[in-house]
């Protein structure tokens, strides 16, 4: 499995040693909102990382249950960030062809087309009237001046990283 990832060098030099500091106190899991309603346990992510079970972790749907609230890293007395590790594992899962939420493809494709995750929507108000930005006299939505150049730049940096 490919684990060397340009992106990852941003966060940690070496995942293998990262969680050696973790003594499994569980403060991360106790603060985790996803743990209240779903199967995600940041403490277990740390344990799996200590045991170097990368492959198992990236094929588990658990890494996609993170609410990205950042409570786990705030609560860690050893200044470890399970949140960032989860983001890393998500990146690895995508890169290695594991299952991931298809919303991510939809958003990424939209980005490569219009530079945003969605187009301007018609929104219905309480009186059942539909409105867009124009109807509300809101200014035109900003967009890259040269969409072709934007797409080339975005593709270049994301595909280089793959």
């Amino acid at each position: 499995m490919e684990t060397q990832h340009d992106a990852w060098s941003l966060f940690y030099e070496d995942l293998d040693t990262l969680f050696e500091e973790c003594n499994q106190c569980g403060k991360c899991s106790s603060g985790c909102p996803a743990a209240r309603v779903l199967a995600l346990r940041p403490r277990k992510i740390a344990l799996s990382a200590q045991r170097k079970k990368l492959e198992e972790m990236i094929s588990s749907e658990v890494i996609w249950l993170c609410a990205q609230c950042h409570q786990c890293l705030e609560r860690c007395p050893r200044e470890i960030s399970p949140y960032e590790v989860i983001i890393y594992l998500q990146n690895l899962a995508v890169k290695n062809g594991a299952e991931y939420p298809r919303d991510l493809d939809i958003m990424s494709n939209s980005l490569k087309r219009i530079s945003r995750i969605q187009e301007v929507q018609e929104i219905m108000d309480k009186e059942f009237e539909d409105y867009t930005r124009d109807d509300l006299d809101l200014p035109e939505l900003p967009a890259p001046k040269d969409m072709g150049a934007f797409v080339r730049a975005f593709r270049r940096i994301t595909e280089e990283a793959e």
Binding site: H5, N91, L104, L111, P142
Partner: peptide, 23 residues
């Protein structure tokens, strides 16, 4: 208003972390 601006990048953080930083 920020002419030329785009998505902030956060939606692709878990998908492609360098793409996030670029945006």
């Amino acid at each position: 208003d920020m002419d030329g601006s785009s998505c902030c990048g956060v939606p692709v953080k878990g998908y492609n972390v360098v793409g996030w930083l670029f945006l």
